[in-house]
C-alpha cells in the first residue's frame, strides 16, 4: 500500500475513536465533528512524523498535540467554547492505553510469580513510555497557554 493510503487509513481509524469518546464525554453534536477531525489530524500527523521523520513516539505526540491545540484555539474562539472540550477527546486515540495496562499487569505478575528481570523490564519500559507519552499529550495541549496566551484567557 502506498504511504498516502496508509496515512489516510490511519487518520480514518483514529477519527472513529475520537468521535466515540467525544460521545462518551457528552460533547454536543455540533462540536462533535471537530473531535473526529482533530483526532484524525493529530494521529495522522504523529504517524507521519514517526514513519517519515523517524521521531520517537513521545516527540511525535508532543508535536501532534501542539499543532492540534493551536488550531483548536482558533476553532474554540469561533465556537465560544474552551478548546479542551473537543481537543481532549481528539487526543484519546494517542493515549498509550495498552502500554499502561501492560506495565500494570507486569507488576501483578511480579507479585504472583516472583521477581524476574524480564518482567521488571517490561513493567518499567512500558510504564515510562506511557508516562512520557501522556506528559507529551498534556503539555502539547497546554502549549497555547504556555506560549501565546500567557496572561490572558484563551476564550
Amino acid at each position: 500500500m502506498s504511504f498516502l493510503l496508509l496515512l489516510l487509513q490511519d487518520m480514518a481509524l483514529a477519527a472513529v475513536p475520537a468521535l466515540g469518546f467525544g460521545m462518551l464525554f457528552h460533547v454536543h453534536p455540533r462540536i462533535l465533528l471537530y473531535c473526529a477531525l482533530f483526532g484524525a489530524v493529530g494521529h495522522g500527523l504523529r504517524f507521519l512524523l514517526m514513519d517519515r521523520f523517524l521521531l520517537p513516539i513521545e516527540w511525535g505526540t508532543l508535536v501532534a498535540a501542539t499543532v492540534v491545540s493551536f488550531v483548536g484555539v482558533y476553532v474554540a474562539q469561533s465556537l465560544r467554547a474552551h478548546p479542551k472540550v473537543f481537543t481532549v477527546a481528539a487526543m484519546i486515540p494517542m493515549v498509550p492505553g495498552v502500554r499502561a495496562y501492560t506495565a500494570m499487569l507486569a507488576i501483578v505478575q511480579i507479585n504472583q510469580k516472583g521477581y524476574s528481570e524480564a518482567l521488571f523490564q517490561t513493567a518499567v519500559q512500558n510504564a515510562l513510555q506511557a508516562f512520557f507519552t501522556i506528559g507529551a499529550l498534556a503539555v502539547g495541549l497546554a502549549m497555547p497557554g504556555l506560549i501565546l496566551y500567557r496572561r490572558k484567557p484563551v476564550v
Binding site: M91, V95, I134, A138, V139, A142, L146
Partner: peptide, 23 residues
C-alpha cells in the same frame, strides 16, 4: 484482548492531571 479494555483508559483524568500540574 488488549484492545477491548481500551474503553476504560482514564484519558481525561490523566490529561487533566498533567495540565493541572503544569499550570
Amino acid at each position: 484482548m488488549a484492545s477491548c479494555v481500551l474503553l476504560l483508559v482514564p484519558g481525561v483524568p490523566l490529561i487533566n492531571a498533567v495540565s493541572d500540574m503544569v499550570k
